[in-house]
Write a protein that binds this DNA or RNA. Structure first.
Lengths: 199, 199
DNA sequence: TGCATTTCTTGACACCGTGTCAAGTTGACA
DNA sequence: TGTCAACTTGACACGGTGTCAAGAAATGCA
């Protein structure tokens, strides 16, 4: 209600994101966040009941700031099904590095914390809807590979576009973001349409 | 060196794997493993310096028992490059569920523990060698898609065959193991060879 | 058989990070 | 001036890991 409290809350979230982004993410204990935000550790608990909720709130805060829905919506304007697939892959692929810092912590926490897993699943479901919409557009254009139904195609696309795969290719394998985008677009076209419709 | 100690060590590792496999993996604290192995918690520390080392040893123990190298070697006998790709995907794909219980804990620990991450990376590098060999066979047969060099193809195949992707499709999306194998084989062929050489 | 060595047990404790509780301070604003 | 919300300080419980010391029990070897 009071603007003071809201400002502090936003500062906490932004600080948490900064810590997650730059520097090693192990160093984001409650005390680290508090210190960086210029606040006492206990004051954090006046705003968030526990660490999981804080991290969840932080990623939601980031999502609102960068507005993923707007970038994904843009891909809906493409004329053909394949064009839309390309646009979707590109929009989401470019979104990943923006949110990765925060998402990373949530992914790690998902292995142990049920609430964090729910939050992460919720985020990923949003992506899944985008995948399903892209697949629908392919079906309308008759471009979906034979022997692949809507569900399987969505599952496949959603798996291909996972954050973990982005990490594997760009971080572990050292691909540039452009390499990642191009190859993933090609891969998605091959996987869903069978042959390369836009060589 | 005494056989007693070796037997206890093996029992600890087997117990740890059993716990990781059946039941929730959060319930594999040092005390849980000790209790299940019929040993005192402190005795664990006589065999393993810490929890990370124990889990690493457990996955290596499992690897030796199931002998992944043998199953992968079998895929090397395929006549054509594409046949070899299929065989490799199948061999590794069938290996994943066998080791998943143990691997899961190591993956989770990789997010926080450097040593666990090294162990996991080491395991994944073994798979990567198999991927590289399969790609080489494709190149020899001239079946590699245009615009894809050996490194990129290996990176791609290795990413496709990640345990995380197997989890996404079989656990999250509910695919059967057969669905997973068939679609992943098709996907790999499309991704690496461009068109489907074995419809 | 007896004795030393290895293996394991019991019980205590330090450390770290999370989360909680209570009492006190500061500042806004009515 | 008094009240209320936001925050501070300092203490503490809890769970899980890892450590230490002293003693019991099994094992191997003479």
């Amino acid at each position: 209600m009071s603007s003071k409290s809201e400002k502090t809350r936003a500062r906490i979230l932004q600080t948490a994101l900064d810590l997650l982004e730059s520097g090693n993410p192990q160093k984001t204990r409650m005390s680290d966040i508090a210190k960086a935000a210029g606040i006492s550790r206990q004051a954090l608990y006046l705003h968030f009941p526990n660490r999981a909720d804080l991290l969840i709130a932080a990623t939601k805060y980031l999502d609102e700031k960068v507005n993923i829905d707007a970038s994904l919506a843009e891909s809906r304007t493409a004329a053909t099904g394949v064009g839309r697939l390309d646009a979707f892959v590109q929009a989401w692929g470019n979104h990943i590095p923006v949110v990765y810092g925060g998402a990373r912590a949530l992914m790690a926490l998902s292995d142990t914390d049920a609430e964090a897993q729910a939050a992460w699943t919720d985020r990923m479901n949003a992506v899944r809807h985008g995948c399903a919409a892209a697949v629908d557009a392919l079906i309308r254009d008759g471009d979906l590979r034979a022997g692949l139904d809507a569900k399987a195609a969505t599952d496949l696309l959603w798996t291909l576009l996972s954050v973990r795969n982005w990490v594997a290719l760009t971080q572990t394998c050292g691909w540039t973001q452009d390499d990642y985008l191009q190859e993933t677009q090609k891969l998605a076209r091959h996987a869903l349409c069978g042959i390369d419709p836009n060589p």
